[in-house]
């Protein structure tokens, strides 16, 4: 579809621009200002790039960066195939499709801290079914004491919470495939795998990119759920970037280093979202 060229369209976009700029640009500028100074209450000194050097060489933060990438990677590796599978299993039409849609959407509407609470209860060995069940099966499971268990629980919690998003997106992508495609495939006696590989997957590409982008970014800024579930522990094993940052900024009130940390964090996000966005828009134009 050809679009009209008109700079008057800016007037329609202006309210959005002003609204978002107010909450985005002023804070960003302030963070940059913080990041190059040493601030105690009313006194502040210019320190240049010292904080950046310190943050980049801080091994604890490097660890949480690695942890963050591993976590986001695992989230994508589990949720994307599972989400596609669920979307393929959903009924195509009728009453049941609406019911399944509603049930799938349910976890998405649970507030982040309540997700933490639910799994905090569900995973406990004394009062939670999940923790009790695992222990009854002979596994020594305790998410509050064992780092591996804590990791596993945080991951499972995220899968529980967000796989539906991928499934719903894929479902909408699958519905957009005309029936004629499937008929042609059945005439050719194409196998299920071939139908998936050559008809469904290509059609899913654009919605999957949106899903992957949303999931990557949201898992990259995950804060509330592990905060409620484990408080970042045991040790630092489930302390992800946002939590390390919040601890530094609000807990210890190290405004300067926290500012530098924020900027680095923001630059990584900017780079990754640009890569995804470019892949998305250039995939569309072909």
């Amino acid at each position: 579809m050809k679009k009209t060229k008109s700079n008057k369209a800016w007037f329609l976009v202006l309210p959005v621009f002003i609204l978002v700029a107010f909450s985005a640009i002023v804070p960003l500028m302030t963070v940059v200002n913080y990041s190059i100074q040493d601030i105690f209450g009313a006194t502040r000194y210019f320190v240049g790039v010292e904080w950046y050097r310190e943050i980049l060489n801080n091994s604890r933060l490097q660890d949480s960066l690695v942890r963050q990438f591993v976590f986001s990677g695992s989230v994508l590796l589990i949720e994307v195939p599972l989400g596609i599978a669920v979307a393929l299993m959903m009924p195509k039409a009728g009453k049941w499709s609406v019911v399944t849609l509603l049930v799938l959407a349910l976890p998405l509407l649970v507030p982040l801290n309540v997700v933490g609470t639910i799994w905090q209860i569900f995973g406990r060995a004394d009062i939670g079914l999940f923790g009790w069940g695992l222990n009854a099966l002979g596994m020594d499971y305790n998410y509050a004491a064992n780092p591996m268990d804590a990791w596993f629980t945080v991951l499972l919690m995220d899968v529980w919470h967000w796989t539906s998003l991928i499934a719903l997106l894929c479902y909408s992508g699958l519905r957009a495939i005309p029936d004629a495609y499937y008929q042609a495939a059945s005439i050719d006696r194409a196998s299920n795998w071939a139908v998936f590989r050559y008809i469904q997957l290509p059609k899913l590409k654009s919605v999957l990119l949106i899903g992957v982008l949303l999931r990557f970014m949201d898992s990259f800024m995950i804060y509330t759920e592990p905060f409620v579930l484990t408080g970042g522990g045991p040790g630092n094993s489930t302390t992800f970037l946002s939590q390390a940052l919040t601890k530094m900024a609000v807990g210890q009130f190290d405004i300067g280093p926290a500012g530098a940390f924020s900027i680095i964090y923001f630059l990584i996000i900017l780079l990754v979202s640009w890569l995804f966005y470019t892949a998305m828009t250039h995939g569309d134009s072909k």
Partner: peptide, 12 residues
């Protein structure tokens, strides 16, 4: 702005 973590802008 949808992608950047709120934690980054918390203090300002």
């Amino acid at each position: 702005n949808r992608m950047s973590p709120p934690a980054v802008f918390l203090l300002p």
